[in-house]
Design a protein around this nucleic acid. Structure first.
Lengths: 193, 193, 193, 193
DNA sequence: CATGAATGAGTATTCATTCAT
DNA sequence: AATGAATGAATACTCATTCAT
């Protein structure tokens, strides 16, 4: 029942942070919706910021696991890019809350040097960048791609993958970008014909 | 001297909203940095929200003008896409503050139905979408492109253009995406070879 | 046009003070509804309090005139009492705004010693008291009444006359006290049968 | 110690509201005189209005109890009227603060339809009206009175009883109306001789 | 683990009033 | 006579956080 409540707090807080943002979510609101009193939040966490950081870490942890679980051996290197876009599509559709947290500009305060949030985000970005760069380099080597320079192309693909997710969660169903269309767009650009 | 202060307030507020976000900017802060007392803000504007809305309207107005001023007759249709990306690059570099405001998720409160902010944003999005769609359709007609379906492709390009701007303002110089590279990426995907 | 605006200010202010009370009426509201700017209020009057005092003086002036105009020679002395009640009824019906101001507990601040409002109110109360006392004394002398002690009876009649006016302006039409009924009630008590 | 402070807040607030009125009493003042910080007011109550409403309800509750405790069986029906006046005299003398609150015109805001204050006041007025009407009807039946129409006469008596209380708290000792005198005044008018 | 009570520091907003013109 | 601009002092209310139990 103890662990239970801590978990519940995190669930509620995550939902509120995702839908209202960090600044517009009060500790009272978190406490009330968890059916708990505020001091309990402070028993389990150091403060509001820690709750947020904790959640962010969790979300990115899951995201990292998803990236890690993407198949290492694919027929073509481009399949890896396609898989990344499909993963973003999946997250946007199945875990829109997490997508919102991943894309949320953390409140400025939490992005200062030395704050845990900053580390989490930077680590995450490097991870995805690596994933894409590795795949581009392999593709280049195999003459599947002709992507130069690799870092730049990786960055562009990351742009696309991110904003693709952003649009999926921000727009109405009928004006969302299409997953397969986005993949094809990238294929045309990347894969040598 | 009168108009002067109103203008000054808007400048200061814009800078603060862009760098700290709406919620983390207090009216006191705006007043202090304008070297003015708080009640003056309320003399010129109805409240904090109106200041924000006013600024947002201004920024989008300028953005709309920029889009409008992009050359209508270009050698190729793709040049129009390239110009859009160059425009985003230009804004990110020369007016990063405006870029931040354009991309900022307005606080939820200001995005509710019937709020002026919502109208501004929606109008803007449709404008850019139209620009891209028109150009894609022309390009398709001229057999320059083979972009189908048009709406989807337009959305993808919008994604890229937006997140491109976002990355330019969020990342350090050395890890920003390159304008020419981004343009080439799109060209490869769009232009029939 | 000058006198005109001063008059207009007083009219608007009187209406607002009567309906909302002194504290809930702002100088801005007075200015706006007079279609004038606030500094003009301060050109014509020393401040909000002076406007109120001025109005109160006017209203009581008119009230005093009404009392003064009540017929001095009546068939019976009781007719004078009846006339006072009828006057209150008349004011409540024809000038409810004035009635409201007469009965309003002036805001505490304005009732401090040495404030003009206090003088006005006290002078007024003494005037009505005198009117009633004179009539009672005459009535006693003529053996029409048997009202003892005169001061006390006068006070009771004043109570009735005032609260009668108060009820007329505060209550819905169907639960207001009836003028003739009130007069008869007093007659039965006062007039020797 | 907890209940203690809530009670203290109410006591202090009641005293301030009674002496200064709702609008001229600030939450800071209430807090300071209670030797408590403002947020505590908001911990115990929803806001200033709720504090006022709460107090008003309490005062009227006590008043209602007093009315209820008035002897049901009296020698004459008129004794009941006399008792009501004596009750008002008692309240004015022993609990002038409550008297002030009872008679205070609640600020307009709090008298809007659907506001708790309105209900409280209306309920109260009907209660006293009933008390007087019942007694008048009984008196008429017993041929003790000849009060017609009952509703009207009841209203007049209510006028007197209220304004009597008002005068007792507003005037200096030497110009207050006399309880016994007021009772006799009513007796002469009501009781058939 | 849990809570009722309490608070320091803010937070947007309002108001009567004044100044320069 | 009239106004646009400006302000000092409040004003109700909120929030993250802590303390005593």
């Amino acid at each position: 029942m103890a662990k239970n409540k801590k978990k519940k707090i995190l669930e509620v807080a995550a939902q509120l942070f995702a839908s209202q943002g960090f600044d517009n979510t009060t500790t009272l609101q978190i406490a009330r919706e968890t059916r708990v009193t505020e001091p309990l939040l402070y028993y389990h966490f150091k403060g509001k910021e820690e709750i947020f950081t904790y959640i962010l870490a969790e979300v990115f942890q899951k995201y990292a696991e998803h990236i890690d679980e993407l198949p290492k051996n694919t027929q073509t290197e481009f399949d890896k890019i396609a898989n990344l876009i499909r993963l973003h599509s999946h997250i946007a559709e199945e875990h829109p809350q997490n997508a919102r947290l991943i894309l949320s500009n953390c409140p400025g305060k939490l992005m200062q040097k030395q704050h845990a949030c900053r580390d989490i985000l930077e680590k995450q970005q490097q991870m995805v960048s690596s994933y894409i760069q590795d795949c581009l380099e392999s593709g280049n080597a195999k003459k599947e791609f002709d992507a130069h320079p690799v870092e730049q192309t990786a960055l562009i693909l990351l742009c696309l993958a991110n904003e693709f997710m952003r649009m999926k969660i921000m727009r109405k169903k009928d004006s969302q970008p299409d997953t397969q269309g986005t993949i094809e767009f990238c294929r045309k650009s990347l894969v040598k014909s």
